[in-house]
Design a protein around this nucleic acid. Structure first.
Length: 233
DNA sequence: GCATTAACCACAG
DNA sequence: CTGTGGTTAATGC
């Protein structure tokens, strides 16, 4: 139990797992955050925040992995991005309507800090560098959605899946072999296709020796081939 | 018309 | 949940 609190309940001032945003705060501001935050551990599969509910806090992922997605029509959903440590999770609701516009669920056991929205805004008001870094984070998220919009609307299934695999390789796991924390359903929701189609595309990649799919991991055997498939759509 | 694409469906493991 | 095969509708030569 001691280890648990040493790891997750440390004061924000000395915290080594805060997102880059919060590294721009001085000790006084960090203390403000510390007094108005709460740290919660979620188990794999649990919902961290739900689209449509009231936004009372902004989030920072300390450890673990989560998926951030839009809940679409019927049971379908579109994953906007995978959240890894130590990403900040805000959203349009901060300045628009105080509503969560996407759902976040844990892909593995994850520790998350919930920071009071009012305190977050107070710090935005008093710390220019912090406000700029927040805008930068927000803008880069928007930019990646623009890129994904083009990918998803102008490429066929192999190109979309290649993009997804390259994204996981380059941005998330940074390793050619990554664990199947991401299910086939998730790969489908990342690639804008049905789960049936995702399985078929993955199998064809496997048959062509571009990737190797085993029970608990995926290995990229030929990332260059994936880049080619991504380019030709 | 014909071929391709990709979703939908039922179902087995 | 993972995976398979058949059917079907839309799209593009």
């Amino acid at each position: 139990m001691g280890d648990y609190f040493d790891k997750f309940e440390r004061n924000c001032v000395g915290c080594t797992c805060k997102s880059t945003l919060f590294e721009l705060l001085n000790d006084e501001e960090l203390t403000m955050v510390d007094k108005n935050k709460i740290t919660v551990v979620f188990r794999k599969g649990e919902t961290i925040k739900k689209q449509g509910t009231r936004m009372s806090h902004v989030l920072s992922l300390n450890s673990g992995l989560a998926k951030l997605y839009l809940e679409g029509i019927e049971e379908r959903s579109a994953i906007l991005r995978i959240v890894k440590p130590t990403n900040f999770i805000g959203g349009p609701g901060i300045y628009l309507d105080q509503v969560h516009h996407f759902t976040v669920t844990a892909l593995m056991d994850s520790s998350i800090c919930f920071i009071d929205l009012r305190v977050f805004k107070q710090i935005i008001d008093r710390n220019k560098a912090f406000a700029e870094e927040f805008m930068k984070d927000f803008s880069s998220n928007i930019l990646s959605v623009y890129t994904r919009l083009i990918n998803l609307t102008q490429k066929q299934m192999p190109g979309r899946m290649a993009d997804t695999l390259l994204y996981l390789f380059n941005e998330i796991f940074e390793n050619k072999t990554f664990p199947k924390i991401i299910s086939n359903y998730d790969l489908a929701d990342l690639s804008g296709m049905s789960k049936d189609s995702a399985v078929k595309v993955l199998r064809s990649f496997d048959k062509d020796k571009i990737i190797r799919v085993s029970d608990n991991e995926i290995t990229l055997l030929d990332p260059d081939a994936l880049k080619t498939i991504s380019r030709i759509g």
